[in-house]
Design a protein around this nucleic acid. Structure first.
Length: 281
DNA sequence: CTTTCAGCCTGGGCGC
DNA sequence: TGCGCCCAGGCTGAAA
């Protein structure tokens, strides 16, 4: 569950749930992952959890050192919190339950805290974990589109005259960090721009609409706690509801929300793109 | 520099 | 039930 709004949701919820907990032990279960000198973190306090780009960052302060633990969920990574006192499992993406056995399969790292256990579960094993000493060392390749420095002028400069297709460009994390396949399609629909257009062909008005759509769609998705594709229903009804607002993503063959045309699916850079050929002409 | 494409992994869904 | 495909919210590195 990994684009900016989903990661933002997870980071906020985990922060609310686990901030202040003291770390006792880190157990790495996947040989692909390693956390060098993690023993030095014993006793470190989880100050807060924030989002950086598409990653979740745990800010830990120990008796001797400060460390930032950066978790990238990639395609299938999820975080679970097993609360000691409540004996419940929090998933941060739509439900709370006491289901037994969650995370037994595909659990890659267990972070044992005094008040509970954080599980990093990742079936496809694309996710990464990185321990760094300062915010400067965090892996944040490009600009955060929700920040105040993501202005229209900065966006114009960033776009330049690239010959790349705009949809493909929006996925470039070294330019804007946080957009993924769902929101790139949704943003282009919102701004009425054909995903096949090249960056250099966009006129001033289109760039302005695009900038505004990026801000608007992300704000709205964060407000609805992101998009959740899950088998289980939310027991709270308040988290991960943006799937109900998607206008084109995953809707190939369906009628467009704004006209009579049918939503198309095309493949660009080996990723599906969904769009309305009439609204995005 | 660009674009394409296999690869990293596992699992779910669908047609036969 | 089973097999073979295709698909999946991400990204890298090699090749062309």
């Amino acid at each position: 569950m990994p684009e900016l709004p989903e990661v933002e949701t997870v980071a906020r919820r985990l922060n609310d749930t686990a901030a202040g907990a003291a770390l006792e032990k880190i157990i790495v279960l996947d040989k692909k992952l390693s956390i060098p000198d993690r023993k030095n973190l014993r006793g470190a306090v989880l100050r807060r959890v924030v989002r950086a780009g598409k990653t979740v960052v745990l800010e830990l302060s120990g008796p001797e050192s400060q460390r930032l633990l950066q978790i990238h969920l990639r395609m299938s990574g999820r975080l679970f919190w097993i609360d000691k006192a409540e004996n419940t499992i929090h998933t941060f993406d739509g439900y709370v339950s006491n289901v037994k056995g969650v995370g037994r399969k595909h659990c890659r790292v267990r972070f044992l805290f005094d008040s509970g256990t954080l599980l990093f579960v990742d079936p496809r094993r694309f996710g990464t974990v990185k321990l760094v000493r300062s915010a400067q060392e965090l892996d944040i390749p490009g600009l955060d589109p929700t920040g105040s420095d993501f202005t229209l002028a900065v966006f114009r400069k960033l776009l330049g005259e690239s010959a790349q297709k705009i949809k493909v460009w929006l996925l470039r994390q070294d330019r804007i960090t946080g957009l993924g396949n769902i929101y790139a399609s949704e943003i282009l629909f919102d701004s009425g721009i054909d995903p096949e257009r090249t960056v250099g062909s966009l006129n001033s008005a289109e760039i302005k609409r695009l900038h505004s759509s990026i801000r608007k769609i992300l704000r709205n998705a964060i407000k609805h706690c992101g998009t959740t594709f899950s088998d289980f229903q939310s027991s709270e009804g308040s988290l991960g509801e943006y799937q109900n607002y998607l206008k084109v993503y995953g809707r190939a063959g369906e009628k467009c929300a704004d006209c009579d045309a049918k939503i198309l699916r095309v493949v660009q850079a080996q990723r599906s793109t969904f769009y309305c050929p009439q609204c995005q002409a």
